[in-house]
Design a protein around this nucleic acid. Structure first.
Lengths: 197, 197
DNA sequence: TCAGTATTATGACGGATGTCATAGATCGCA
DNA sequence: TGCGATCTATGACATCCGTCATAATACTGA
């Protein structure tokens, strides 16, 4: 939950930026706040991120995308009954648990960056695109492992990510995990029926 | 696309706020920008919205929710083959057309408000919740009209809104309508199979 | 020890923002 | 015509932000 005190101040600042972005959005996240949250000196900001806020935000978004991608493999390995629907349920479960434990104050940093700064800086948009790609790729691979035809897997990965992101939005808006529970239940049959076994 | 010059300056400002919010996010939308966009005098802001930016944003979000809700009935009436899947296709089609016509610079204002100011002001969160509710209610009703069992309709409405919102995010991130096309195609069989006829 | 680099500290600047105070204009209605 | 309420105009204020300039400090290797 909190930033690991190990690792250099640079990584801590990227992590802290992601945390603040997913809670307050890009615009409301200040550089000074990031440094404070990371327990890093303010002067280090211009040293490690000469590209300014834009660079810091982009790195945070990219980091979040890779983080989400890595979790897919962990979910897959931990599934008692490995099916696409169960994988999606695990992904939603993660958010349900987090919302129940920490409240609905925080969402997905990639979504925040997409909504907040897609129109402004082109590099930010690219960062969100690569972040989603870094999430979708392992997910697609996982689906093929679960006997989803390779031709179908990318589409289902897009469907899963879209639905999950939207359900996160709804959950935060109405401060309820119900949307996550609902979409997990409704999508499971469709996802499982795509597995050719 | 542009604000109708009829209607009072108050409505024009709410409309302009929604437009700017869905493009730049809540934080990056300035009161002065809203007045300029609405071709309304700056002094009218404090007259019509004594609650300040918070009130203006909340009204814009609420307005957007009702607007989305009203469109559902129009989609339903215009369907050549009235099925749940076709209704969802019409909803995605609307966004595809808009992205192709105006580019990927603008998204959903309710999503922007959810991501941007859920954590900060409680009233903003309530506004997003009511906005989504004002969208989901007509959608649920439309689904029952399409022979979806009343017990199932709310869940499918949640699924449709979630998936659409997420697909909008992905589309903006990768500047492609592909996610919208994909989710429409993938979800259609599931939605249609829920209609008991 | 010393030089050179890496890191940190701190203050200032220009710009933008939301809000307020105050005055002016406009319009309906008697 | 004149009054009162509704609307508009405009400037100022305090605040915060990202960025930069500049200097001090810490660390590394010879």
């Amino acid at each position: 939950m909190t930033a690991p005190r190990t690792r250099g101040p640079r990584e801590r600042m990227v992590f802290a930026a992601a945390q603040l972005i997913r809670r307050d959005g890009v615009g409301a996240t200040g550089m000074r706040d990031v440094a404070a949250r990371a327990e890093a000196p303010r002067g280090s900001l211009q040293h490690y991120f000469p590209g300014g806020k834009e660079q810091l935000v982009n790195e945070a978004v990219t980091w979040a995308g890779h983080y989400a991608g890595k979790r897919v493999a962990r979910y897959l390995a931990a599934l008692p009954e490995p099916t696409p629907g169960a994988l999606f349920a695990a992904m939603t479960r993660q958010w349900i648990d987090e919302f129940e434990a920490a409240g609905f104050g925080t969402g997905c940093p990639v979504a925040a960056a997409t909504v907040d700064s897609t129109a402004s800086t082109p590099s930010a948009r690219e960062a969100t695109a690569t972040a989603f790609a870094a999430w979708a790729a392992p997910l697609t691979e996982a689906l093929t492992t679960l006997d989803v035809p390779p031709a179908r897997a990318p589409a289902l990965a897009t469907l899963m990510i879209s639905t999950l992101e939207g359900a996160i939005l709804l959950a935060r808006a109405q401060e309820s995990t119900a949307p996550l529970v609902t979409v997990a239940a409704e999508l499971a049959p469709l996802l499982d029926s795509a597995a050719t076994r």
